[in-house]
Design a protein around this nucleic acid. Structure first.
Length: 339
DNA sequence: ATAGCCTGTCACGTTACATCA
DNA sequence: GATGATGTAACGTGACAGGCT
């Protein structure tokens, strides 16, 4: 029996790990109705791609909209259903609601106090008539943090040397978390609006989301590795059991007289039966009884119980539409809903 | 139509700082 | 108070996609 290859390295990239999983296992690891992040991770798709957009429902949108409504209003929320990678489409898509867009930009600009914010705003929302060198300058400014980390520090940190580390307040972290639950990525407008609401620079919000995604991915990798580890252990145990079963059968066959000496019907080998669904071989004279032992039917209580030896083949179980691997025989070893 | 450049954003790895035991 | 572990904000880098010329 081939065993699944465990992760070869603790640094295995999660997307590789997940895409290498058997689909049934993958399915069990992805909670129904999971967040867009979960989908993005488990399907090996980029979390900022169209998937997120396509899976964004109005229900999923509302928390995000609520989180930002204090700054930008409802017009914002409508467009926030789309991830940032389609930011360039917003200008055209939102052309009809240009007034709302202007309102948003004005709102963001009003609250914007740092040059970075202004740069981000102009870069994100303007019609692209900016000077390229200016764009680059703003980008460099934001990247290097020369106008950033220390620019908004009022604690008297000197400008030379080490970076001053900001500690987000609980409220700030809570809002960021709330937004992250809805969308793990931000488009420029969302970023600016959120930054304004929290009194942070857009770059800080951007960094927070990047780090948050990284933490999520790391955590998920740990969960996945643990899951696979236990799965592998189970398969190893099952393999041992099957090997023992095979040895028993061989011993049984060796102990039997030659077929020429006895009729085939009375040969011990002829009494061997195989469970049709799980293909488990059993030396039993009454195969009906054996089969019922394997898969008790007409037992309402046990209708959804998966035989223990079938736990490792969730695909076969799922196809029957009866019991899921998660729900019945093998509850999730490690939940993916850690946060 | 196509190539090259620019820009924005991402993931990933790393660093530096704050906090805590 | 010093110290190591841990968490995380911030940074550097390369890759990618989309727009523009």
């Amino acid at each position: 029996m081939p065993l699944p290859s465990p992760p070869s390295s603790p640094h295995l990239r999660p997307d590789h790990l997940l895409t290498s999983l058997p689909p049934p296992l993958l399915a069990t690891m992805v909670p129904q109705g999971g967040s867009s992040l979960d989908l993005g991770l488990s399907l090996g798709l980029t979390s900022q791609g169209s998937l997120t957009s396509s899976t964004s429902s109005a229900a999923a949108l509302s928390p995000w909209a609520a989180a930002l409504s204090s700054v930008v209003g409802d017009a914002m929320a409508t467009r926030d259903a789309h991830p940032h990678h389609h930011q360039h489409h917003y200008a055209s898509a939102a052309a009809a609601s240009a007034a709302a867009l202007v309102d948003l930009d004005r709102a963001a600009m009003r609250a914007s106090t740092s040059p970075d914010s202004a740069a981000a705003l102009s870069n994100g929302a303007s019609g692209g008539d900016n000077n390229n060198s200016n764009k680059r300058d703003h980008r460099d400014l934001e990247r290097t943090g020369s106008g950033g980390v220390r620019s908004d520090e009022e604690d008297g940190a000197d400008g030379a040397g080490g970076r001053k580390k900001l500690r987000l307040s609980k409220d700030q972290a809570a809002v960021l978390e709330e937004c992250f639950k809805t969308h793990s990525t931000l488009n420029p407008k969302q970023k600016v609006a959120l930054a304004n609401r929290l009194g942070l620079r857009p770059r800080q919000v951007e960094v927070w989301f990047q780090n948050r995604r990284a933490r999520t991915k790391l955590k998920q990798t740990e969960v996945d590795c643990e899951y696979l580890k236990r799965w592998c252990e189970r398969l190893t145990d099952e393999n041992k059991r099957l090997e023992k079963e095979l040895a028993d059968l061989r011993a049984l066959k060796a102990a039997a007289p030659s077929p020429a000496a006895q009729p085939a019907s009375s040969s011990p080998a002829a009494t061997l039966t195989m469970c049709p669904s799980c293909r488990r071989v059993a030396a039993a004279a009454a195969n009906h009884h054996q089969q019922q032992q394997c898969h008790p039917k007409s037992n309402a209580a046990a209708k959804n119980v998966v035989p223990s030896h079938c736990q490792f083949f969730p695909a076969a179980v799922d196809r029957k539409g009866q019991s899921s691997w998660n729900a019945a025989a093998a509850p999730p070893l490690v939940t993916r809903e850690l946060f």
